[in-house]
Amino acid sequence: MSTIDEVPLPEATFGERVTRLLGVVAGDPTARAELDMARVIDELKALGAEPIEDLTPEEARSQPSPADAVSSLMARYGISDPDEEVRTRELRYPGADGELAARLYTPAGVASGPLPLVVYYPGGGWVLSDLDDYDASARAIASRTGALVLAVETRRAPEHKFPAAHDDAVAAYRWALEKAEELGASPGQIAVAGESAGGNLAINVAIAARDREMTPPVHLTLIYPLAGVDLTTPSFRTNEFARPVNKAMIGWYLGHALLGVDQKEDPRLDLVGHADLSGLPPITLLTAEIDPLRSEGHELADKLRSSGVAVNAVDFEGVSHGFFGMGAIVRHARSAQELVASDLRSAFGFEERGARAGRAL
């Protein structure tokens, strides 16, 4: 097995070129995807994944995921996991209402002694959140930063409605602070990261740390975070029928996660409309072109800056929501991973901040 750099993907076939041309004519958002990203989307469909908005939560949890599509392509092209040497250990932590699963990632070849720690919250719209589906993201962060990564699960909707996941996320961060030394981490070098709905959890953890007088994280990484509840933004219109995440799917997530529409006014959900974002640590914020959440990510960056928060906001064109953990196949994912790692390493005092990729906002 080899890496993607050693075994580059083949050029577009005639069928792929025709499909992309027809997609452009039909206004399919996915037609704007880079070839490597498009192949992941097509592979997910080939594996039998159905539109999540047409499924029950149980059905959605059992069907193939984007991570499965990446694994399938890796096997087809003979590509190995670039971060396979990262070691993992399964843990349990006390959530807000009982124990929950966590996984500690330790990078290979690190020096002995306390390491920085990144508390990472996976995506899944608070309904599909799963450590395995976001394993590649956590591995990449650990491998490229030289830091420990603690990935945590939270309770899932609809079995546990909002704000269950948010309460668990805060409990996980508090536990990480208390157990840092036992985990092999330095208590003064803890960052928080999250992807999609997990990005929403991550920034809410920092807000809770500010308001509850907990030790704040030294840095936040927000990867295409869910930051609002307005499904009429420009990116929701442009990417209404995008894949693997579209407008109907976001509505499906919110419908299962919330007790009622009045909860949309909660500042933990409507960050761009109702949250106080002042006094937060420096933030790296990534958005993707083919993503309904793109506009609210840009709005979040603007509001953070107006609140006095330092933000490195970068938009990646030609990729879809969920691309970050696809570094084994998608080149922009590797660039995004390096960007996140650079900013985290700077926050930990390892190197100068300032690596850039994508389009700075």
Rank of each mutant, 00 (worst) to 15 (best):
T3G: 12
T13A: 09
T19E: 15
R20A: 15
L21C: 07
V24M: 13
V24E: 14
A26Y: 07
G27Y: 11
G27D: 05
P29A: 15
T30N: 13
T30R: 12
A33K: 08
A38C: 04
R39Y: 10
R39I: 12
V40L: 10
I41Q: 15
D42T: 14
L47A: 12
L47N: 14
G48H: 12
E50T: 15
E53G: 01
D54H: 08
E58N: 00
P66L: 01
P66Q: 01
A67L: 01
A69P: 01
V70L: 11
S71V: 10
S71T: 12
S80K: 11
E84R: 12
E85P: 03
T88L: 08
E90K: 14
L91P: 01
P94S: 08
G95W: 02
A102K: 10
V110Y: 02
P114F: 10
P114N: 10
P114E: 06
Y121C: 09
P122N: 08
G124L: 05
G125K: 05
L131P: 02
D132R: 14
D133I: 14
Y134V: 08
S137R: 07
A138K: 01
R139S: 04
A140R: 15
G146N: 04
G146Y: 04
A147E: 02
A151R: 02
R156E: 00
F162Y: 13
F162C: 05
A164K: 05
V170S: 03
W175T: 04
L177W: 00
L183R: 00
G188F: 01
A191N: 05
A193Q: 10
A193F: 11
E195Y: 09
G199W: 07
N200Y: 06
A206R: 03
A208M: 02
A209M: 01
D211H: 03
D211V: 00
E213D: 10
H219D: 06
L220E: 11
I223G: 03
V229I: 12
V229E: 09
L231E: 06
T232L: 08
P234S: 07
T238P: 00
E240P: 00
A242R: 11
P244L: 15
N246L: 07
K247V: 08
K247A: 13
M249Y: 03
G251W: 09
G255F: 07
A257C: 14
L259R: 13
G260P: 08
D262L: 15
K264Q: 13
E265F: 13
R268I: 06
L271Y: 06
H274K: 14
A275N: 08
A275G: 02
L277Y: 04
S278V: 03
G279S: 04
G279T: 00
P281F: 00
P281R: 04
P282W: 01
P282N: 01
P282R: 00
I283Q: 09
I283L: 13
T284K: 02
L285C: 03
E289Y: 07
E289Q: 15
S295G: 05
S295V: 05
G297E: 04
H298A: 12
L300A: 08
L300Y: 04
L300C: 04
A301F: 09
K303Q: 08
K303F: 00
V309I: 01
A310M: 10
V319H: 07
V319C: 09
H321Q: 07
G325L: 15
G325R: 11
G327F: 07
E338A: 14
A341V: 02
S342T: 06
S342P: 00
D343S: 11
L344I: 11
L344E: 03
R345G: 10
A347N: 05
G349W: 06
G349Y: 05
R353Y: 04
G354H: 07
L361E: 15
